[in-house]
Nucleic acid binder design. Sequence first.
DNA 1: TTGAACCTTATAGTCGCTGTAAGGTTCATC
DNA 2: GATGAACCTTACAGCGACTATAAGGTTCAA
Lengths: 146, 146
Amino acid sequence: MKIGEVAARTGLTAQAIRYYEREGLLPRASRTHTGYRLYGPEALNRLAFIKQARQLGLSLEEIKRVLDMSDSGRAPCCQVRTLLAGKLEHLDRTIAELVTLRDQLRRFLSKIAGMPDQADASDHICRLIQVAAAVPPDAARTRQSR
Amino acid sequence: MKIGEVAARTGLTAQAIRYYEREGLLPRASRTHTGYRLYGPEALNRLAFIKQARQLGLSLEEIKRVLDMSDSGRAPCCQVRTLLAGKLEHLDRTIAELVTLRDQLRRFLSKIAGMPDQADASDHICRLIQVAAAVPPDAARTRQSR
DNA sequence: TTGAACCTTATAGTCGCTGTAAGGTTCATC
DNA sequence: GATGAACCTTACAGCGACTATAAGGTTCAA
């Protein structure tokens, strides 16, 4: 198989596949005499693994660690469990933050719904957001989302 | 005030403040005779606005548009309302996506909780994630999720 | 006069790709 | 055998909002 077929079969782009090779997640593919990459069916498995792991929220670096373990004959399953448990926790925190943000934004929007627009040459920019800035200062403790 | 004090007072980094200046969100600061940036108290307002708007999910480009309007004497409030309403919608979608992902991850973790670890020289990498990859094949049609 | 703590610019790196440029290959059709 | 479309190759720039680093100048107290 050439890279285009692999791309079509995995739902990845050819660019992404080359990128994974460059990053060491795929072994260097063999080539035709004119330099085209050639893949066997096992590449589909590996790419399906990478794709699934990405969709579960693992970074390429984490995936590479798992693949390297597997390639050297060690069972990566335990590490996968730990990794995913960590991701789940992180995801919980992220969702909680975004829900907080959403509620803040919603309250804010309904608060400003009735306010008049105003141009101002004064030191405040938009009274609408200024109001929001005057929010309890420890709400500013929430770090930037994603 | 020099940049370090502004940074400490706003909770931003000096680098970020210089970056905002480069990107046109702040006017070029005046300088001491040795080249240090000097800020008046109004810079704190402007930076508080930027920070708050960022926390509400606006991009620097969107914030710049609002600031430019305000600087030219037009009321940006209407645009701010529209911008924030859009962000709220987007936020709703993002949260829904992440909740789906979390549920998927949770189900997956409980599914693999009882499975034994295994090293494998075979063509599969980690049976744990392989199970997940063996998902209905037309699910592969769904384009890559961010 | 030493040193720490501050400031300056410029440049590279982050992440996971995508997009583009500039070119070579394959294959069917004219 | 010439043309053209569809494929492939590499290399490099760009995204967003910064952070990190290098290499140097300034300020101020001990």
